[in-house]
Design a protein around this nucleic acid. Structure first.
Lengths: 360, 360
DNA sequence: CCGTGTAATGCTCGTTTGGAGTATAAGTGA
DNA sequence: TCACTTATACTCCAAACGAGCATTACACGG
């Protein structure tokens, strides 16, 4: 990547628009700037442009339905939706948004770039593919319907990530012993120690569980050869029968290419984000009870939250306001209905919304 | 929890999690995976490959020399180094690393992807360019020498970001009045209010200064038309005379295209990162005193730190170990020399290195 | 040799957060 | 009516944090 050109640094002049990596939410500003920029004249282009590559977008679209965090999948739930990068749009972000909304009729409340990958030969031959992945949040009842897409709980792909009812048995029953075996199967005691160290710290064998290490855990399992995708790659030839791959007990459902890794990246990002940015509301219906909100957060974080503290936090931050109505769904004292105070998005530049996650 | 944009809370430690798609530090895992993936056979390229585009990499290379945070620039300090994306390397990250090390002879201790941009019309006609930006940290005495590259304090580009000796006068003397004028120059009182609200919160007129909002501040100034680059874009034709652009007092040195924006992204990312990940050490020499370390952090954060608390934090986290030697450079009691305990990188999967930033 | 300047260090304090627990109120359904 | 479920109001406590005071150690200049 990056070429060898001795001293060259391109003197390109065209200006690059693009939505803010920070705000995620596309602002008027961005649009504005983009329009202006595209009207500009590029003064001095003469730069050797890199050789052509192909680019496409991959989306991790998340929603939470009845306490279950879901992700939109295609191809028999083995792939994330993706599409070619088109020039038609002002920015990739708006392009992604338009594309998703057209395909699924779901409004995307929030879009954020995740990561850009470059694989050698994917599409064959000389051409290289660049994949730019995005995380998008949408409301409930996805009603995707249309084509071959379907929503699926992301814990189907990462069974070890759901700690809402305590640590999943699969960790101790399957992962722990296999990771230990992997660690011990090393050339040196040093490597064995390091391996075990990593396993213990990412899975919390020796400390508290950290729900944000989704990607690290996946990568560790991959490296340890416990992930079907890894075996497939190792083989160097066609993947084994999908059914067989899925059959690898306890390791979760496999996906094509590195889609599962991208999904892990998205989950990790989202779990981190909800702690300091009020994005959860993008996943909630217009009005909701505090318990519903809490359940949503718990679904994402994969762990429980202390109810009283959760409420204290939400209230003291004035994130929501009462609608005046109440809901008496789940038998029990009726709960007040709330609505997200969108004003806070403007009020505070960036702030931390915190999540009280139980230690127990 | 939750949320979307702002929720306030005290400027205490606000530890911001991070969109770290991975650890940033390239691990064996990554290499491994990439090799495997490239050997893999794509089962069903579910995706039509997009039309060819050009791609290049842009680097924000940072170092801290004698209390000054520097960035590597080219073209008379008006551009960030960049180069075409080539297929020669296993990954973009390793490509970037190799390229930089070859060009500058600087070892990159840490590399992290920042953001990927896509422009319409840049290289002319049909072809579109994708720019993938990276943040790289390197040791002191950059000794770039070689070609037209030079290190430059990043506060030359963002004069309002250095609060180490208190808020820079430029904020109250220049920015505040101009932003107020911009806010008032709106169609509606509502817009005026929103504009002022944003200005006040990002620049801390009505609350504490938040050093992480580098990008938001830059974008705000851009939107307000106070940034030379914006005028240039607005003009719709060739940029004005560079000297004239730089002359815009108080607004910092301009750069080509949106390089300054990318730099802002890098600074913001770094300021956030040092609070929960021990990356500062990548900028330090092999051995150092705690005061030097503190100065480095202060240079990056653009604000002072409480010395005693800083030490307490560093020690209790066992990030460093004594070398046994002392340094008696700056007249005063000789300071013990320390060395970073690299083991911690392996010990803890991710942990928080916290920084005690003074409120005063 | 003493006084002064500059840092390094050690310790204390009071406040703020954040995790947890207890108690009580207010509905539904059997 | 009771049994059950959830909403809500408070209280406690300990760790984390921001700040300040006091003391120790050197270099240097008279």
């Amino acid at each position: 990547m990056i070429g060898s050109p001795p001293i060259c640094f391109n003197a390109r002049t065209a200006i690059r628009p693009e939505p803010s990596p920070a705000s995620g939410v596309e602002r008027k500003t961005d649009m504005l700037r983009e329009r202006q920029l595209s009207a500009r004249i590029a003064p001095t282009p003469p730069v050797q442009i890199g050789r052509p590559v192909a680019a496409d977008l991959i989306a991790v679209l998340a929603a939470v339905t009845s306490g279950d965090p879901r992700v939109l999948t295609i191809q028999d739930q083995r792939a994330l939706p993706s599409g070619p990068f088109e020039l038609a749009h002002r920015s990739m972000q708006s392009g992604l948004r338009a594309w998703v909304e057209r395909q699924t009729r779901l409004p995307l409340g929030y879009v954020e770039q995740l990561y850009t990958f470059a694989d050698k030969d994917r599409g064959g031959g000389e051409q290289r593919v660049i994949s730019i992945s995005y995380l998008g949040l949408t409301r409930e009842q996805p009603a995707s319907g249309e084509f071959e897409a379907s929503w699926r709980s992301w814990y189907a792909y990462f069974p070890w990530e759901d700690h809402r009812v305590g640590p999943p048995p699969v960790i101790e029953d399957v992962l722990l012993p296999r990771l230990r075996a992997w660690a011990e199967d090393s050339f040196s005691a040093r490597i064995a120690h390091d391996r075990w160290q990593r396993a213990a710290s990412t899975f919390g064998f020796d400390r508290a569980w950290n729900e944000e290490l989704v990607l690290q855990r996946y990568e560790l399992l991959y490296e340890a050869g416990l992930i079907p995708e890894a075996e497939r790659d190792d083989a160097g030839d066609a993947p084994r029968d999908p059914a067989a791959i899925d059959a690898v007990s306890g390791m979760g459902r496999a996906m094509i290419l590195d889609h599962r890794r991208i999904l892990a990246t998205g989950i990790a990002r989202l779990r981190a984000k909800i702690k300091y940015h009020p994005v959860v509301f993008e996943l909630m219906p217009e009005t909701f009870t505090l318990l519903q909100l809490q359940r949503c957060v718990e679904a994402l974080a994969g762990r429980l939250v202390h109810k009283q503290n959760f409420r204290r936090l939400i209230e003291q931050q004035e994130l929501v306001e009462e609608t005046g109505e109440t809901s008496q769904d789940t038998g029990g004292r009726p709960a007040k209905l709330f609505r997200f105070r969108r004003e806070v998005l403007a009020e505070r530049a960036i702030f931390g919304t915190k999540l009280p996650i139980s230690r127990a």
